[in-house]
């Protein structure tokens, strides 16, 4: 069995933009926030206007952090040597109907399957960045 954990310090970390800053600011407080327009459409990754109705009235709303594993790949050749292998990259289909990429952690590798329920868990990587990983719900 292989236990999946958060990556160590030293991996490349996000450099928030003006547009994305609220997402990363919320992550530091343990919240998964995403843009939602006045008509209820979720937008991720962030945009200046909704890509469904083009409303520019977007709010960073707190989400449940719950979803299911939509697709996954177990990576054995790291992007750079900073990453510990193996790690699981996944696309999460969130309860509210939006998608996010992340890693699945706090699980045995052998038990990670498409369709499994997951929830967000944050790991502090630096003073500025906490990463939203996902673990079995």
């Amino acid at each position: 069995m292989t236990w999946l954990a958060a990556q160590p310090q030293g991996i490349p970390l996000p450099k928030p933009s003006e547009l994305s800053a609220p997402h990363w600011e919320a992550a530091k407080n343990g919240e998964l926030r995403v843009q939602r327009c006045e008509n209820g459409h979720y937008v991720f990754i962030p945009l200046p206007a909704c890509n469904y109705c083009w409303s520019t009235k977007l709010e960073w709303v707190k989400t449940s952090g719950k979803g299911t594993l939509y697709s996954m790949s177990i990576v054995y050749r790291p992007q750079t040597p900073a990453f510990q292998i193996p790690y699981v990259v996944g696309i999460m289909e969130m309860e509210e109907g939006w998608f996010i990429m992340s890693n699945v952690i706090n699980a045995e590798l052998e038990n990670v399957k498409i369709g499994m329920p997951l929830k967000v868990t944050f790991t502090k990587m630096s003073d500025d960045i906490a990463l939203p990983y996902f673990e079995p719900a």
Binding site: P12, S17, Q79, Y87, V89, M101, N103
Partner: peptide, 18 residues
């Protein structure tokens, strides 16, 4: 190097794998 991609250890092989 995108902020929503790089930190997850993604590269093109993993993206196409998904």
């Amino acid at each position: 190097t995108n902020e929503f991609v790089e930190c997850w250890g993604l590269f093109t092989a993993a993206e196409f794998a998904l």
